[in-house]
Every structure is written in structure tokens, then in C-alpha cells.
């Protein structure tokens, strides 16, 4: 029986990665939920928008490194991020003007816009692959660990190590800053309030003189920033592979729906619910249980509830359970 070591092992393999992944999903889901709230459709191109934004980061980072710019112990990608956000904003606004605006003007059914976003997804998907190819790219540099497992062991004298990667800390800190800024914007500024008003009741908002095109433009700008940040944090933490970003669509949508589509707070809660369930259910608990059980005893198998290949099944199962019992999500989203 060794509770302390068990706790450290659990923190190291479940809590820390789960928190980082949850923050990434939350940022992705915020983008989906904002589009849903303001433009009223499920944006299938969101995963590829994230890939596009991250691609800009990867390219700008490479350019910066080649002329010798670095960010000391932090990844250079963080310096490249603001520029990449600007590029993504331009891309998203051009897409809106060229594609989506027409359907707003003719007041097309929301499902029409979903199909249109499928077309945008195809185009972005092809474009990203044509520009950077499909290779796995690691673009994180700087200090790899904040605390390595060995440092932790010598510091505490425990036999179990706790490693915290720089990228994980950056993910959580950035997510907190971004979410705080977003909520400040939505709740305190005039534009943010007009966005919420537009999302709650379009007709009433139009009657009170809110300019819908302005609201839509601001929404796209915010979504572009969120998508780029989410994609970059995910890429820093794992690696940049365009294919993976399309697969992220499912957990991101699950997060947004579990939290309640259209509710920013729900998107964050949903992101963490999905991330922690995924990580917990696919973690092999052998080590933790060995520490908790009597001395000299170990469980036979890996004590893994689900193989990691089924992590999509987890987001799906949670989605179904929430839909069955609380169809509008945990935080009462809207239903069209």
C-alpha cells in the first residue's frame, strides 16, 4: 500500500495529459460553439481550419529559426503564433466573403451551410496537404521539460516520477489567458454584448440596430484566433499531422454538444469531460493498482478498460449518454 506513489503515477499519466488535452479540446470546441451560436451551423471545416492555422505557425516558425530568432526556453512557435493568427483571420474572412456570405443573404437553411462547410473542408484539406504535405512534423523547440521524472524523484524521494512538459504548461496557461480574454470580451465590451444578443435572439438584436455583418465578421476573427491557438497547442504537445486534425473533429464536436451547442462555458466543460474520460478509460491502471494493493502483489493484465484505439468510442459514448438524458447539453445550449 503506497498511496503517495499511486497518486503521483495517476497524476503523471492521467491528470497532467488529461488537463492539457482538455484545454486543447475546449479551445477547439469554443470555436465550433461560437460559429453555431452566431452563424447557426455546425462547421465541419473547423478541424481543417485548425490545421491551416497550425500550418502557418509551422511555416513561420521555420522561417524565424532560419534567420536565427528564438524564444529562449520557450518554443519559437509562440512568437510565430500572432502572425499565424493574422494569416488565418485573413483566410477565414476571405472564405466567408467568397462562400458563406451568399447563403446568409438568401437565408439558406442551416443544413445547407453544413454542406457548404463540407466543401470548404475539402478545399482546405487539399490546400494544406499541397502546401506542407502529410508528414508528421514536430515544431516544438526550447526547454522540453519543466520538471523531469528524475528531478522529481530526487526532489521528493518517491520511486514514481512526475514529468511535466513545457508544452503542457504552455497549453494550460495559454488556454486560461485566452478563455479569460474571450469571456471579458463577450461580457464587458459593446461588441461582445451585441454578439451575445445576436446569438440569443436574432430578430430582437436586428431591431435594436445591431449590424449583423459586423457581428459575423468579429465572430470569424475570434474563431480564427481560437482555431489557430487550439491547433498550435495540440501540435506543440503532440505533433503536426494534417490528417489528425480532421479526426479531432469528432471529440471537438462531442465536447461542444456535451456542453451545450452555443454555450461557451459548456464548450469548456465539455472539453474537459471528454478529455478526462478518454484518458482515464484508455489508461492502463496496472501501476496505480500495484501501488495501492498489498505489497508484493500485482494485477495480471494491464487493467486497461479500453484499448487506446477506441478513444473515439469514448467521446461517442459520452455524447450519446448526454444526448439521451439531457438533449440540450450540460449547460443548456440552443436547439434549432
Amino acid at each position: 500500500m503506497d498511496i503517495l506513489n499511486a497518486l503521483v503515477a495517476f497524476t503523471n499519466f492521467v491528470i497532467v495529459p488529461g488537463t492539457a488535452y482538455g484545454a486543447q479540446l475546449a479551445l477547439g470546441a469554443l470555436g465550433v460553439t461560437l460559429i453555431y451560436g452566431i452563424l447557426r451551423f455546425s462547421n465541419f471545416a473547423h478541424g481543417d481550419t485548425m490545421a491551416f492555422g497550425t500550418m502557418f505557425v509551422v511555416l513561420i516558425t521555420a522561417a524565424m529559426k532560419s534567420i536565427g530568432i528564438s524564444f529562449g526556453p520557450l518554443p519559437t512557435a509562440l512568437l510565430a503564433l500572432p502572425f499565424a493568427i493574422l494569416c488565418t483571420m485573413a483566410l477565414v474572412l476571405i472564405t466567408d466573403r467568397a462562400v458563406y456570405r451568399f447563403y446568409r443573404k438568401v437565408k439558406a437553411a442551416p443544413v445547407m451551410l453544413v454542406i457548404v462547410s463540407m466543401g470548404v473542408m475539402f478545399v482546405m484539406n487539399g490546400a494544406v496537404r499541397m502546401i506542407v504535405g502529410t508528414d508528421d512534423r514536430r515544431f516544438a523547440d526550447g526547454e522540453r521539460f519543466l520538471i523531469t521524472a528524475r528531478d522529481f524523484k530526487t526532489m521528493t524521494g518517491l520511486s514514481e516520477g512526475l514529468a511535466i512538459r513545457t508544452t503542457q504548461v504552455i497549453t494550460v496557461v495559454t488556454a486560461v489567458v485566452v478563455v479569460a480574454a474571450l469571456f471579458w470580451f463577450l461580457n464587458k465590451t459593446r461588441t461582445g454584448k451585441s454578439m451575445r444578443a445576436y446569438s440569443d435572439n436574432e430578430d430582437l438584436a436586428l431591431l435594436s440596430g445591431i449590424n449583423p455583418e459586423r457581428v459575423v465578421t468579429v465572430t470569424w476573427l475570434i474563431v480564427a484566433a481560437l482555431a489557430t491557438i487550439a491547433g498550435t497547442l495540440y501540435g506543440l504537445d503532440k505533433s503536426f499531422k494534417p490528417f489528425i486534425y480532421m479526426q479531432l473533429l469528432l471529440p471537438i464536436f462531442a465536447s461542444a454538444i456535451v456542453g451545450g451547442l452555443g454555450s461557451p462555458l459548456g464548450a469548456i466543460a465539455g472539453g474537459f469531460v471528454i478529455a478526462f474520460s478518454e484518458v482515464t478509460l484508455t489508461y492502463a491502471f496496472k501501476k496505480v493498482i500495484t501501488y495501492l494493493g498489498p505489497d508484493g502483489w500485482a494485477p495480471d493484465g494491464l487493467v486497461q478498460l479500453l484499448s487506446t484505439d477506441y478513444k473515439f468510442a469514448v467521446s461517442f459514448a459520452i455524447l450519446i449518454i448526454v444526448l439521451l438524458f439531457k438533449p440540450t447539453g450540460l449547460f443548456k445550449g440552443k436547439s434549432v
Partner: peptide, 20 residues
């Protein structure tokens, strides 16, 4: 499970079942 709910939910449910 997903019919009778909103159309988007059916879409996401089918997306999920395909991956599974």
C-alpha cells in the same frame, strides 16, 4: 438513439459510429 433529436446530432452520431 439520434433520430428525433436535432439534425446536427444525427450527423455527429453517424460521424462517430463510422469512426468506431
Amino acid at each position: 438513439t439520434a433520430l428525433g433529436l436535432r439534425s446536427d446530432y444525427l450527423a455527429i452520431a453517424t460521424l462517430g459510429i463510422a469512426e468506431i
